[in-house]
Design a protein around this nucleic acid. Structure first.
Lengths: 98, 98
DNA sequence: TTATTTGGTTTATAAAATAAACTACTTTAT
DNA sequence: ATAAAGTAGTTTATTTTATAAACCAAATAA
């Protein structure tokens, strides 16, 4: 039947963030914001949720004198992403019972 | 970058319904309910939304004396589903720029 | 020094999902 | 015949989620 989709990942913005972080190793807040087209507020909230779940880490650093928020994916996050993709395939491949 | 995902399809239940209808040609309300594990109320609401978008048609018939709600996918719905899958792939295949 | 920009967070609002309650009718049991 | 229980759903209320608007603090530019 249909296995439930991880609700934390089944969100357009959070999924986009995870997608970026998988290829990017680490990414800065403004970069993610630009790549996803999200507002800063929304991104801030969604990063918090991903961090609370342990899917990413959010590191507060400085770049010269300015604050700089660095994000990167955790092993837990990577695993969750992979599982999400696996689960989703069942929704996308109709007829393929499994 | 990230193309927006059709919000109508980016819903666990509606996606499951569409997935079923693609393989099933037509399906009865109770069958969809059983296969998705949804409550009747939720299913009713989500079927309405899919129908309002023209993604499915909902036909009210009778099976003997009992009411019977038949659903089937429309060409519009099929196209939307395929586009959704295509768009989603960009989120799932990190690094593959396109 | 007073804007303006950068880099965010917090809070309020809108939208969506879900569940609970209800309607209408049928079948079964009494 | 009537009551109880089941089927097939809809409507409405509640909760959750997503989004946007408002705000704060520091740095830079005018």
């Amino acid at each position: 039947m249909f296995k439930p989709l991880d609700p934390l990942l089944h969100s357009e913005l959070r999924l986009a963030v995870m997608s970026l972080l998988i290829s990017a190793e680490t990414a800065e807040f403004p970069y993610i914001k630009e790549q996803t087209g999200a507002t800063a507020g929304n991104l801030s909230v969604q990063l918090d949720k991903l961090a609370a779940a342990g899917y990413i880490t959010v590191e507060k650093t400085f770049k010269g004198k300015r604050p700089c928020t660095l994000c990167h994916i955790t092993p837990t996050g990577l695993k969750a992403f992979e599982e999400y993709v696996e689960t989703l395939r069942e929704y996308l491949k109709p007829g393929a019972s499994g």
